[in-house]
Design a binder for these strands. Structure first.
Length: 417
DNA sequence: TCTGGGGTCCTAGGACCC
DNA sequence: TCTGGGGTCCTAGGACCC
């Protein structure tokens, strides 16, 4: 049996954990550049605020006058996620992180009743991390996700929904909209609605052969999962990741090539840091840039991919991405966003070294190790690479950023006793 | 003034081959 | 008039997730 735990309004709850003034208030957390609403408390939801809503278009509405908005603070949320993970490890044999605020729990071999155990887990997570959660229980991931959703919808309920027994969940399926199912997105929902499939029960009653024609094999797997047949297994060690990206909108539009070069070089610097952090090398890189698609600026969007000798050398890769970016650059546009995406990743030890590498691999590795060690010890950006900039004027807006309460010594809360 | 970022998987269609 | 058949591999784009 599996569980799925997830943090309620996770980013908002992280902010509340360190700022009691936010309790019982409508709070939203905004995306990078203070752009869209990406998390909202129930109070904010009740005012009508929607996920993904551009904040600047709605913030001045009178009903939102008292909404507290925060810039996203991923250093904080990532650390809170890690704490939650550690608490869970004390209760169950295995935890599989799914996203920053969701973790699958392996309940196999536990003697205690699962709803009772789940309640204890919730209380402990709440006490130690201050994060409120809900837990769904089911034989497959899709059922556990659905149960979690049911638990969350019942705001004054126990915070736990147990779909372990077929009879229990099948009784509920008739009243749950198919839109609540993990893996059936807007496109699938439209098609299903057209043929009269509205509830989970309808979806299960729909013949598998027809479903395969209407949607794809993933929908077929989802149907099996909802019947209790496991198709998405727990704890399968994922092969090395397939891609790795750093992409950002600019705080203000970029109009000159030197600035764009700076931005692409800086994004590449971050991306290669991640790459080395995972012990990977990249054999291809994609670069893109585009103008603002919403504000009526003359549109331009382009991207290009090049293959490389497998590498995680910052200097070499910056050279490559800047060359690609230069090929994409067109004078006269107001660029809103650019990004660097590494694809064709493989583990550094297993990488094929070209017969004539453009850099001595041993020297490159030693230099990168030194770079990483210095930045780990003395802080990010202590040592940079030529052409990159730490605090440029195109960097993103984060006007309401909370302190790094848990990851930066200067930001730790003082306690007066 | 102002509209996120980072992933995975699947499929259709083109290139290529015999 | 009249232009095969069947396979593999790769890639771009769509759909989905949080």
């Amino acid at each position: 049996m599996l569980g799925l735990i997830d943090g309620n309004s996770f980013y908002c709850s992280c902010e509340r954990a360190f700022n009691p003034d936010l309790r019982h208030r409508a709070v939203v957390v905004l995306s990078n550049n203070d752009g869209c609403v990406i998390a909202r408390t129930n109070e904010a939801r009740d005012l009508g605020l929607k996920m993904g809503e551009p904040w600047h278009l709605v913030r001045d509405k009178p009903q939102y006058r008292n909404v507290v908005w925060m810039s996203s603070n991923y250093a904080l949320y990532g650390d809170m996620s890690r704490r939650m993970f550690e608490v869970l490890h004390d209760f169950v044999p295995a935890v599989e992180p799914y996203s920053i605020d969701e973790m699958f729990l392996d309940f196999d071999g536990l003697a205690e009743s699962l709803p009772a155990l789940s309640s204890r887990i919730r209380e402990t997570v709440r006490r130690i991390t201050k994060i409120p959660t809900c837990i769904g229980i089911g034989p497959t991931k899709t059922i556990a996700k659905l149960a979690n959703r049911v638990a969350k919808a019942d705001r004054n309920g126990p915070g736990v929904c147990d779909f372990a027994l077929p009879a229990v969940r099948e009784a509920a399926y008739g009243t749950i909209p198919v839109a609540d199912v993990w893996g059936l997105g807007p496109a699938a929902q439209r098609k299903l609605k057209d043929i009269g499939v509205n509830t989970v029960a309808d979806f299960l009653a729909y013949p598998a052969d027809d479903l395969r024609g209407l949607l794809t094999v993933t929908a077929l797997r989802t149907q099996h999962e909802l019947m209790g047949i496991e198709c998405v297994s727990f704890g399968v060690v994922p092969a090395t990741r397939k891609s790795l990206a750093v992409t950002r909108s600019f705080g203000q539009p970029i109009t000159t090539w030197p600035e764009m070069r700076e931005a692409v070089a800086s994004y590449t610097l971050r991306a290669v840091e991640k790459l080395r952090g995972y012990g990977l090398v990249a054999a291809a890189v994609q670069v893109f840039m585009h103008t603002n698609r919403f504000n009526g600026d003359p549109p331009y969007a382009n991207h290009a991919t090049v293959t490389l000798e497998p590498s995680n050398d910052t200097i070499l890769l910056i050279g490559a991405t800047v060359r690609v970016a230069h090929g994409l650059w067109r004078e006269g546009f107001r660029y809103a966003k650019a990004g660097v995406i590494f694809v064709d990743l493989c583990e550094a030890e297993k990488a094929t070294i070209p017969f004539f590498p453009s850099k001595d691999p041993a020297r490159s590795a030693a230099l990168m190790r030194a770079l990483d060690a210095i930045n780990r010890r003395y802080g990010r950006d202590t040592l940079r690479v030529g052409g990159t900039v730490a605090r440029p004027n195109w960097s993103m807006r984060r006007a309401n950023l909370s302190p790094a309460y848990t990851t930066c010594l200067e930001d730790i809360l003082p306690v007066h006793a």
